[in-house]
Amino acid sequence: MPHRLDAALDRFHPVLPLAVGLSGGADSTALLLACAQRWPGQLQAIHVHHGLQAAADGFEQHCRQLCAQLQVPLQVQRVDARPAPGQSPEDAARQARYQAFSAAALDGKARVAIKSIALAHHADDQVETLLLALSRGAGVAGLAAMPAQWQRAGLQWYRPLLEVPGQQLRDWLRAQGQGWVEDPSNQDARYTRNRIRAQLLPVLAQCFPQFRTTFARSSRHAAQAQELLAEVALQDLQQLGEPPRIAALQALSPARQANVLRHWLRSQHQTTPSQAQLAQLQTQLHACRTRGHRIELKIGRGQVRRMGDCIVFGV
């Protein structure tokens, strides 16, 4: 019977040439090694040096040694991952990583013209993402957790290991005789993800041994529901016009109105309203029955306001 990692890679058909995001940890080391075995000469690695901890130079050195061993070209991207005021450290690091991955892949000086990027998130990461979304009262978009494939910045992005438990990746690396580095921040209990991993996942494994599989199935159901909501929102936006007409918005049911407003703000203006902000906007829309009624509401980095018979968003 094939190892879960091998089975996952059997189903993985990336657009080549491929780049792998390489942190130096077990997950990305396993992904890079497995991909190098399958697509020699069609691979590149990208390492993001966050500069946030003393061990960062050691991560880079491990990645350089591993890529030299595998004869895989490596790009090292140094970023400033310090959080902005009000931004979580995890979010700041994640945003910096994605920007660095895109910049490296699209670099015209790269030895290989990258078409796609693979990231090493695995089944435990997916469960953690789902539990975090539940703890925040997320809707179906949040419960869909991490997609296995998407497009961004002209690149195809993949997460081929979402059905492979993290421990199995480590077992596979040991069988290959390959080492990795451990990020000390993974043991820091100040981070909610680490507490989930250390305290909650072992209990779930005792109560529900198949929880990784069943939770992933729930996330796939949520992802399908989100796709349907997006299709409905696109249809509604075509009827509402751009900018959206207030009277047409008022004709929609509250749930459909909320769906199209959320989609309009996210897709057209890269802003996601909180539940309270969205409810307030709907309240103002409902009350907007006279020509002189004003709508003004701060959402994200800008403001929704009335302009004539429509609503507009501006920074």
Score class of each variant (00 low, 15 high):
residue 1 M to N: 01
residue 7 A to F: 07
residue 10 D to L: 03
residue 10 D to C: 10
residue 10 D to Q: 05
residue 12 F to T: 08
residue 21 G to M: 04
residue 27 D to F: 07
residue 37 Q to T: 05
residue 39 W to Y: 13
residue 39 W to G: 09
residue 39 W to S: 10
residue 40 P to Y: 14
residue 41 G to W: 11
residue 50 H to Q: 09
residue 59 F to R: 00
residue 64 R to S: 02
residue 69 Q to M: 04
residue 70 L to E: 10
residue 71 Q to L: 10
residue 74 L to A: 12
residue 79 V to C: 09
residue 83 P to H: 12
residue 85 P to M: 10
residue 88 S to M: 03
residue 92 A to K: 12
residue 93 A to Y: 02
residue 96 A to G: 12
residue 99 Q to D: 13
residue 100 A to L: 07
residue 101 F to W: 13
residue 103 A to G: 03
residue 103 A to R: 15
residue 104 A to T: 02
residue 105 A to V: 00
residue 107 D to A: 15
residue 109 K to D: 14
residue 112 V to K: 09
residue 125 D to L: 07
residue 132 L to Y: 01
residue 132 L to I: 11
residue 137 G to I: 13
residue 138 A to L: 11
residue 142 G to W: 03
residue 146 M to W: 01
residue 165 P to A: 14
residue 167 Q to E: 13
residue 171 D to N: 07
residue 175 A to N: 13
residue 178 Q to F: 03
residue 180 W to G: 00
residue 181 V to F: 04
residue 185 S to P: 00
residue 189 A to Y: 09
residue 193 R to G: 04
residue 194 N to R: 07
residue 195 R to Y: 10
residue 198 A to W: 12
residue 212 R to P: 04
residue 212 R to M: 12
residue 213 T to H: 13
residue 214 T to P: 03
residue 215 F to D: 01
residue 224 Q to A: 15
residue 225 A to I: 06
residue 225 A to T: 09
residue 226 Q to F: 02
residue 228 L to E: 14
residue 231 E to D: 12
residue 232 V to D: 02
residue 233 A to W: 06
residue 235 Q to W: 07
residue 236 D to C: 07
residue 237 L to A: 08
residue 245 R to E: 12
residue 247 A to M: 09
residue 252 L to A: 07
residue 254 P to V: 08
residue 266 R to D: 03
residue 267 S to A: 15
residue 268 Q to M: 04
residue 272 T to K: 04
residue 278 L to W: 04
residue 280 Q to W: 00
residue 285 L to F: 06
residue 287 A to Y: 10
residue 289 R to A: 03
residue 290 T to L: 11
residue 296 E to A: 11
residue 300 G to I: 09
residue 302 G to M: 12
residue 302 G to R: 09
residue 305 R to M: 10
residue 307 M to L: 07
residue 308 G to I: 13
residue 311 I to E: 01
residue 314 G to Q: 15
